[in-house]
Structure formats: structure tokens, C-alpha cells
Write a protein that binds this DNA or RNA. Sequence first.
RNA 1: GUGGAUGUAGCUCAGUUGGUUAGAGCGUCAGGUUGUGGCCCUGAAGGCCGUGGGUUCGAGACCCAUCAUCCACCCCA
Length: 418
Amino acid sequence: MIQRPRGTFDILPEEMPYWYKIEETAREVSALYGFSEIRIPTFEATELFARGVGDTTDVVQKEMYTFTDREGRSLTLRPEGTAGVARALIENGKCSDAMPLKLFYIINCFRYEKPQAGRSREFYQYGVELFGSDSPAADATVIALANAVISRLGITGTELQVNSIGCPSCRPEYHKKLREFFAANEEKLCPTCRERLKTNPLRILDCKNEDCIKLCEGAPKVLDSLCSPCAGHFETLKKYLDASGIAYTVNPKIVRGLDYYTRTVFEFISDKIGAQSTICGGGRYDGLIKQIGGPELPGIGFAMGITRLILAMKACGSEVEEPMAPSLYIAPLGERAQLYALKLSAGLKEAGIYSECDIVGRSLKSQMKYADKIGAKYTLILGDAEIDTGRAILKNMQTGEQSEVGVSDIDALRRLLS
RNA sequence: GUGGAUGUAGCUCAGUUGGUUAGAGCGUCAGGUUGUGGCCCUGAAGGCCGUGGGUUCGAGACCCAUCAUCCACCCCA
């Protein structure tokens, strides 16, 4: 038995209603907000992610599926969508289009991580990117879109957390202050945080270690260290969110692990799906396009983990479409009837009626059982006598009622069934 | 990458202090007299007991390794 690779999963037919609902909702709401779909390659030049996502990040350092192709080029299975979308815009000259550019995508991504509830090595995300506006109104729009999708999916009890992590002009200053603060208290930090002190001191604020949490209480706050444009941006965003009636809490501890984020960062958190509780994560990335070789072009976006959405939908008892049940099951008896049944079934399908017909050669009793199991609304019993007379028995599977109907007129049959 | 728990039929699980041919329920398939489903009854198929070593006269049970799954850390969607 050859098993699927670790961290991958099969999406079985019985799960599809959830996927359909999410994909339909994502497309519908995106369209309402004026976002168009884009599809990008599954793999890209490794350098795109190294430069875009940032080569000090965990994602790039230890989680990428990188390989060399037959010509010796280094390629990487996309670990996220934003860098690829940004690349596609630059490469296709879209940066000169009318602004803002509003795009969404539904893709699979790959990260070499240890699997856990809500975390797999191949995962799916619905993401949205808005380029060409540095106004907090863009931030508010994107957050409103995320909020609308989540609520339309019937997911309740989520919390929106927002924060600002500053920009290239004020963040270094804050980093310096943080570093100084923690360096003075280094012996109180946990081992991983001592490591973070060198790599990314912002992350220390998010540590779950008790001693670190205590120490963080006295640490300089990001929001106090923002430059005035960043502070203004954040204040205005909050005002817009308030005006839109979108509830949020400010969490100065949220820090995104991707280097391209600037200013606004946000997460929608669910308390119902285990430790991987971020259902949607996003933020502003004003430097990204420039960073990967395009013009100066601000942007903001988010991504939602589809399997996490499904976990949350199930936890919330969100309703999804039932699988289609056939309107009619045709039970042929014998060779002649089989032939006739296939023809009849095809005719009904042409008329837009979902009908099933035995193709296994079962006994009538077994066929009845099967018709019941698949939820057929009616069953038509077809033997030699019926073909000769052109009239057969139609059984209503709910009431058990039987009546004789003509089988040569498909239109008449269709009317009977609907 | 670190830690904890768990691997017996398609699914959910039993399996006594190690002891003959490995069990149940659900599901699947077939029957329960002529061409009629749901309930009920009968029967069948389906397991190298995750894999590889070891201990033992004897291992599904014990030991070691390995793989996988789940949970948490980490990270993130």
C-alpha cells in the first residue's frame, strides 16, 4: 500500500459541500467588492519568495519545498500567494493599469511543517490583494470583505484583532528600543526568545512562556513607537472600522511572520478549532512590489485557510448543500428493458432531470433497496410487458404510492416528476 | 525541529494475568418462493492485529526501532 505523503490529505466527495460553499461565497463576495480572480503558477523561482517573503523568515528558511529542475534552476512550490500575485502584476504590466488593482485567488500552498489540526503540508487558501492605495480606507475595505465572507459562511464567535507594526522609517527605531530592553533582561528570557532577540525581537512579544509574558509587560509598545504617519494611518483605520460597525480589538502582540508586512496587520481568530486558531490573517505590504523589482506600489491583503474555515463551519453547525438525489430511479428487468432504460434515462437528462438507472444487473429487490439508499424520489419499474404496452409503474418512494404512467412521452414524465 | 498520546475489518471499537482456527456493531454484497425499498431475520465477502526486529515453547498483547495519525510547542492560513 502506497500512502499519501505526510501532511497531505484527500478531499472526499462527502466533504465537497463545504468546499463548494466556501469557494462560491468567496467568489460572490469578492465580486461584490470588485475583486477579480487571478490564477498563478504552483511553483515560482525560489528567489521570488526569498526576496518577497523574506529570507530570515521561518517560511523561507525551513519550510519551503525547493527543488532544482532539469536545467539547474532553483524552483519552489509556493508557500503563500501574495508574492506570486505581485510578480504576476509586474510581469504583465498591470502596475500601470487604473488603480486600485483588486484581485483574489483560491490556491493550494505548500509548507514543510509538522502536521497538526488545521495545519498540513499542502493547504488551501482563499486570498485577496488590493494594490495601489495607501489609504486606511483600503485596509478597511479589505477587512470588511474578510468579515463578510466569514459571516456568510455561518462562522460565529470569531474575533478580529488589529495592530500596526510600523513602516521602514519607524520600525528600526522600535526594533532598537526593543532589543535594548530585552538585552538588558536577557537572562529572564526563554531559550527560543534569546534566539529571537537576534533574529526578530518583535516575536518575543508573542511568546507564551510565563516569564517572557511578564517581562513583556514592561517592554516598549509598538503603538507608542509609531511614526506620526503610521500612527495616523492606524487611528484612521480604527475610525473607519468603527464607522463600518466592524468589531475589533487592538492586540499589540500580533506580529506577522512574513517580512513584507508594514503598518496594518490583522487576524480573525476562532476559539473553536484548536491551537491553529487563525482563520484569516493579513496586513499591509507597501514595500513588496518594489522589493521584487516593480514600481513603488502599496498593497494590502489577507488569506484565509480553507480547511480552518471548514473546521470552524463544522464547529458552528453551518449549513451546506445536501448532495443531489435523483428525481427518478429506473429499474429495468432484463436485456430489452436495460436498453430501453438507458435510452429513457438519457432522454430525461437531456430534459434536465437527474435520473439513475441500474447498470449493475441487480434483482428488482436489490434495485429498490439501492433506489431507497440513494434517496431517489420516484422509481420506475420497467419490464418486457411495460415496453410492449408503453405504460409502466411509477412508485413514489416517500409515500409508497404507485401509479401507471406512459413512458414514451418524456415531457409528460418530466411534468409528473417535478 | 521539540514534547505527549495512539495505531486490531471500509468506519467505530472489543480482545481477560501472553495460550488453539482474531470478535462485535455499523457499512458493503446476496438471500428471506412469482416483478417492489425503509423495519426485521439469515448468510457471505472483508484483517501479514501499522512495519521491522527482539524476548518466549507460544506475542494482537511484553521490549526496542521505525513509519503514520492525533494533540501541544514553534510557526502560520
